[in-house]
């Protein structure tokens, strides 16, 4: 089985990077999170409800929606911050990519670590630009907002194709499909990966991408 892979390419100013990535990842996670499961004695379970919150961007003309889970929001923010700091640092070329990967675990066999099988990957490839004045910044603010609008609409389109999702697990195997560590919400298992193109790598952004795609598809 191949994982579905979506790649978004964006050109943003350094300070817009965090919000650009967060708006897309949170939109995806909102669709890929369920209410918390509560099991009862008979083995059946009740599902909680997912709350949502509007978030206004500071540096982009955009409002997006995320799950009302401070802990999930913190996890995502921490990952994006690390990526953004490296991307904006002096050592990089201002190009890099970050991906949100949903996976399921195959039950572990004797002595082996459980195998992680990705089933959906969302990649945001960023290129940073430098703007000279406030006029340009205003234009960029609106332009990036429009670009992200298109991406949000595309995410909705993909979500409503109702493609493969892991099957609902039995209670004992809940954590092979869902991340049950959050108190208020239950997202499908996910992880965030990122890579920054170094100055020496030159034209290796493409090759890094190929490597990443090869990695995600090689199972």
């Amino acid at each position: 089985m191949n994982a579905r892979s979506q790649i978004f390419e964006l050109t943003v100013e350094g300070r817009q990077a965090d919000e650009a990535v967060a708006s897309l990842f949170h939109t995806v996670l909102f669709h890929r999170s369920l209410g918390k499961f509560t099991y009862n004695d008979e083995g059946s379970y009740s599902v909680g409800t997912v709350g949502y919150t509007d978030v206004d961007c500071d540096f982009i003309d955009l409002t997006y929606v995320c799950c009302s889970s401070p802990s999930l929001e913190q996890t995502i923010r921490r990952e994006i911050n690390c990526f953004s700091e490296q991307l904006r640092g002096n050592e990089g070329t201002g190009m890099g990519q970050i991906s949100l990967e949903f996976f399921q675990k195959k039950p572990s066999r004797w002595l082996f670590q459980p195998e992680c099988i990705p089933w959906e990957v969302w990649t945001v490839r960023l290129e940073l630009i430098t703007l000279n004045n406030e006029g340009e910044r205003q234009v960029c603010r609106e332009k990036v907002g429009e670009m992200l609008t298109d991406k949000v609409l595309y995410i909705a389109e993909v979500m409503n194709r109702h493609d493969y999702l892991p099957k609902m697990p039995i209670q004992s195997e809940l954590e092979t499909v869902f991340d049950a560590s959050y108190r208020d919400i239950q997202p499908y298992l996910f992880k965030v990966n990122y890579s920054i193109s170094g100055p020496s790598s030159g034209s290796t952004v493409g090759s890094t991408m190929k490597k990443l795609i090869r990695e995600t598809l090689s199972f």
Binding site: K36, G48, T49, V50, G51, Y52, T63, D184
Partner: peptide, 24 residues
């Protein structure tokens, strides 16, 4: 701006929960 809370424990009758589509 809208903000609704996640509810891990659902309350109310079965039907009212069912018709929320697990979204608050």
């Amino acid at each position: 701006k809208v903000s609704t809370a996640c509810k891990p424990q659902t309350t109310g009758t079965d039907w009212s929960i069912l018709f929320q589509f697990n979204l608050n």
